[in-house]
């Protein structure tokens, strides 16, 4: 990038500027296997055109040890798209569409640690691609809801059959959605927030 010509660096459109009163941000991660609709969901609810943050990792970090220690470490670029929703003049919500593989997560500090919670997107044609990520969230204690992205040719299972297959306890919400539709994606986020709220309430009672 040519920083000498920094006047031409693309920035937010004027209408996308956050107010000066914006004091803090929270984040939610949208996670799932390859091609399940993460980018689509981020884009459908974001108030800004979705953006991409990248990080590079060397092969040693990927866990491929064939070339470990060799001079030519190849670097892989990992991209993560994200969007934004202004909640109040003070509070901003960011949504990150995160690759399912945990080996990428450490590239961004606190991506999961600080998140309010997660949406796990699943595609019933390839349920198993989201198994690992759910286990990782369970291990880390990140609360999540499951959103079933309705692809037209995908098998439709009753929710309770899915719950059994995914081995999810009864309180974890499972909902159908169409990630291309803003209202549907918004409902998924609302379901996550209500779930987090119920966890907070029950936590407060014990």
């Amino acid at each position: 990038m040519d920083f000498k010509n920094s006047d031409t660096i693309p920035g937010p459109r004027t209408e996308d500027h956050l107010p000066h009163t914006a004091q803090a941000a929270v984040k939610i991660v949208i996670v799932g296997g390859f091609g399940v609709g993460k980018t689509t969901m981020v884009g459908s609810v974001s108030e800004i055109r979705p953006l991409t943050t990248e990080e590079t990792m060397t092969q040693a970090g990927i866990g491929v040890d064939d070339n470990y220690g060799s001079e030519s470490k190849t670097a892989t670029t990992v991209a993560m798209d994200f969007g934004r929703i202004s909640i109040t003049d003070q509070l901003v919500l960011y949504l990150f569409g995160t690759p399912g593989q945990e080996r990428f997560w450490f590239l961004w500090n606190g991506l999961f640690e600080g998140a309010l919670g997660a949406v796990v997107l699943i595609d019933t044609r390839r349920l198993e691609v989201s198994f690992d990520v759910m286990g990782r969230l369970e291990e880390r204690g990140v609360p999540f809801v499951v959103a079933v992205n309705s692809f037209p040719d995908a098998p439709r299972y009753p929710i309770e059959e899915l719950r059994t297959a995914l081995d999810l306890s009864p309180e974890i919400p499972i909902i159908e959605c169409d990630a291309r539709r803003r209202a549907s994606s918004r409902d998924v986020l609302m379901t996550l927030m209500r779930f987090l709220h119920s966890l907070a309430m029950s936590g407060a009672l014990t």
Partner: peptide, 17 residues
Amino acid sequence: RQALPDRSLLEAVMHGL
């Protein structure tokens, strides 16, 4: 996220959504 999330924060996010 905290062990005991702030309910008013969650409510604010819901309201915004």
